[in-house]
Amino acid sequence: MDAEFSQTEGTCGRVKVLFFARAREIAGVSETSLGIDGAESSKTIKDCIDLLTKQFPGLEEIMSCIVVALNQEYADQSSLVKSGDELALIPPISGG
């Protein structure tokens, strides 16, 4: 089911996005690929999130409480991303 949404064929810069827990439920896929080429040369995590919430509007409701990891490391929304990076959206889960 990932294939429908992922656009990994492109030759331009791409970021791999992993969805966890509620984020995966909302997106309906466990990962996707995001094209990051555009007018500006550098893109931030915030830019990526804006693109993602356009593609998956439901993500908006959890963005305020989400941990974002860039290449498996906690990252601020102002961090720059480059082609080949991996972004993980990790909302807290609370069940037990």
Binding site: F20, A21, R22, I62, C65, I90, P91, P92, I93, S94
Partner: peptide, 30 residues
């Protein structure tokens, strides 16, 4: 899904450092 962290240990963050804003109702399911 599962998550595991040790908080407030050896200079590490606390739960609020990571999640200063609580999830909106409905976003953190039961």
């Amino acid at each position: 899904d599962g998550q595991l962290t040790v908080y407030n240990f050896n200079g590490g963050p606390c739960y609020r450092c990571l999640f200063p804003v609580p999830p909106p109702q409905g976003a953190c399911q039961r």
